[in-house]
Each structure stands twice: as structure tokens, then as C-alpha cells.
């Protein structure tokens, strides 16, 4: 009993920084995982990755002007992300270029500017910090920010749920009955940026997209409906955060990669054992019903 307590409870009970890391990462999962599900269903999984890179110059600008402060870097990242999301989204909506190409173009330009800015004044340690984050150093200010982002995300998803599903399922139909199609697309991109920015102090710009995509991708193997998929993705996100933090604590590993790798383990397990996974498909193929 004591060993179990020592393994799973004590790290969180005894250390304030572990508690804050836990609260912060759980809140992040609550917002980012459903957003990730829709990102995946819209076949924009890699766009999330691109957006994460696009945030860098904004965060770097905040860092150059104010040093290693959460708020300026977050606001900077938000601005950069929104510019790239709107720019790429607008190019794909109003020209013949598809979103993947315009997104790639915008984020590469943005990333180059970001690296340039960091290299002008920062040392490589600072760059590492921006790129990889520190979930173990979340202060109350950061937690409040993440809480706000999660609240905005969940409320927006609840309001626009039906339009978002329609826009994914049959966009032409939505256009024929409503003018919400384009606004909903941009609101959704806004949520993606918001959640990536929320995640980047904890996990870094490179890995924050991991908590968004991996649970969603894993959940896809278990269910054929959107609602359970979102719930499942959040639960997988929770489990990954707890497992990752414990792993990081006991094995002295960096927490961000530990969380994302935990989600990665769930992803591979889902590929194999999910109800729509490989093994199940093999077994079911041997038997069939009469009708």
C-alpha cells in the first residue's frame, strides 16, 4: 500500500510544483483534446503542427521585449498564431490554393522570423525553453491563463458544435442553409491557436500540439461517433498527463516529452487493440453473419 502511495500519490501530495503541473496539464487536456479531434476529422492534423511552429515569432517577440514572462509571450504567440491562421485560411478560402499549401507557406515564413528573433538576442538556453516549455514551472498566473483558455474553448465548442459538425461532415450543405460556414472555420482555427498557446508554456511550442493530436488520433480507433470520441480523447489526455508527470518525477525525465510519449504509448496500443484497430479487424474478418 505504501509503495503504491509512494509511486502514485506522494509526488503530487508532497510537492506544490507537481500539483500545479498536474492541474495545468489536466486543464490543457480538457480543452485541447476535443479541438484535436476536430482537427483530425478535418484532415488538418499537420496544420496543428504548422500552427504550433507559427506561434514562435510572437512568443519570441514577447521574450525579446519583456524577457521570460508568461503573459507577453502568450499574447505575442496568440497574435502570431491568429495572423497565420487567418492568412492561411483566407488564402485557401478565397483562392484556388488548398489550405495545406497556404498553411505551409505561412508557417515556414513565421518560423524563420521566430528563429531569427530568438537568435538576435537570446542564448540557446532561452530558445530551448521556448521550444520545449517547462510544465514543472507553471506559476499561478500561467494556471489562470490556461483556465481561461479552457473555459473559452469549451463554451465555444458547446455553442458552435452543430455548425462545426456540419462543416466537417458536409460543408456544401451548411453553405446552402446557413452563412456560418466560413465564420465557424475561423472560430475553430482561433481555438486551435488558443490551445496551442495555452500549451506552449507547459509543453513548448513543438510539443504542445502533441497533447492535442495524439489522444484524438488514439480515440479514433475506439468509436464511430464524434461525441464519445471527444470524451475518450480527453480521458486519454488525462491519463497521459498523469503517467507522464509520474514518469518524469520518478525517472528524472523532462516532463513535456514524458507526457507526449505516454500519449504515444496509448496511441500505439489503440492501433493494435482498439475496436477499430488492427487485431480486431483481423479476428472479425474470419467470421461473418448471414446478413
Amino acid at each position: 500500500m505504501d509503495t503504491l502511495y509512494g509511486l502514485f500519490i506522494a509526488p503530487f501530495a508532497d510537492f506544490g510544483f507537481m500539483q500545479r503541473a498536474l492541474i495545468g496539464s489536466l486543464m490543457l487536456s480538457l480543452g485541447a483534446c476535443p479541438v484535436g479531434v476536430f482537427l483530425m476529422l478535418r484532415r488538418m492534423s499537420l496544420s496543428g503542427d504548422a500552427m504550433a511552429h507559427a506561434i514562435l515569432p510572437g512568443a519570441a517577440a514577447g521574450f525579446l521585449l519583456y524577457g521570460l514572462e508568461i503573459l507577453p509571450m502568450t499574447i505575442g504567440g496568440l497574435i502570431a498564431g491568429v495572423i497565420v491562421a487567418l492568412g492561411a485560411g483566407a488564402v485557401s478560402r478565397f483562392t484556388i490554393q488548398r489550405e495545406d499549401a497556404s498553411m505551409a507557406a505561412f508557417y515556414l515564413i513565421s518560423l524563420a522570423i521566430g528563429v531569427l528573433m530568438v537568435s538576435i538576442r537570446g542564448s540557446s538556453v532561452d530558445l530551448m525553453h521556448v521550444l520545449f516549455g517547462t510544465v514543472l514551472a507553471l506559476n499561478n498566473e500561467a494556471l489562470t491563463l490556461i483556465g481561461g483558455i479552457v473555459a473559452v474553448t469549451l463554451v465555444s465548442l458547446a455553442i458552435f458544435w452543430r455548425a462545426l459538425v456540419a462543416e466537417c461532415l458536409d460543408p456544401l450543405f451548411l453553405r446552402s442553409v446557413s452563412r456560418l460556414g466560413s465564420p465557424v472555420h475561423f472560430i475553430f482555427l482561433g481555438l486551435v491557436v488558443l490551445n496551442l498557446v495555452g500549451g506552449f508554456q507547459a509543453l513548448g511550442t513543438l510539443l504542445s500540439v502533441g497533447l492535442m493530436m495524439l489522444p484524438a488520433a488514439a480515440a479514433r480507433f475506439w468509436t464511430v461517433r464524434v461525441e464519445p470520441m471527444c470524451v475518450l480523447a480527453v480521458l486519454i489526455g488525462f491519463a497521459s498527463c498523469i503517467a507522464g508527470l509520474l514518469l518524469s518525477y520518478h525517472a528524472s525525465l523532462p516532463s513535456g516529452p514524458a507526457i507526449i510519449l505516454s500519449a504515444g504509448v496509448v496511441y500505439f496500443a489503440s492501433i493494435l487493440f482498439g475496436t477499430r484497430g488492427i487485431l480486431r479487424a483481423r479476428i472479425v474478418h474470419h467470421r461473418h453473419r448471414t446478413a
Partner: peptide, 22 residues
């Protein structure tokens, strides 16, 4: 040419219910 995404995880009832939009 429907832009319907057939791989979207939806049931028949979800697709038909879109018709309730108006």
C-alpha cells in the same frame, strides 16, 4: 458532387438530422 466526408464518424441519423437546420 457532394462535399460529404464519408469517413466522418457519423451515423445515418446524424447526417439526416442536419436537415433540421432550417
Amino acid at each position: 458532387q457532394s462535399e460529404l466526408d464519408r469517413s466522418f464518424p457519423a451515423r445515418v441519423v446524424d447526417l439526416v438530422s442536419l436537415g433540421l437546420w432550417p
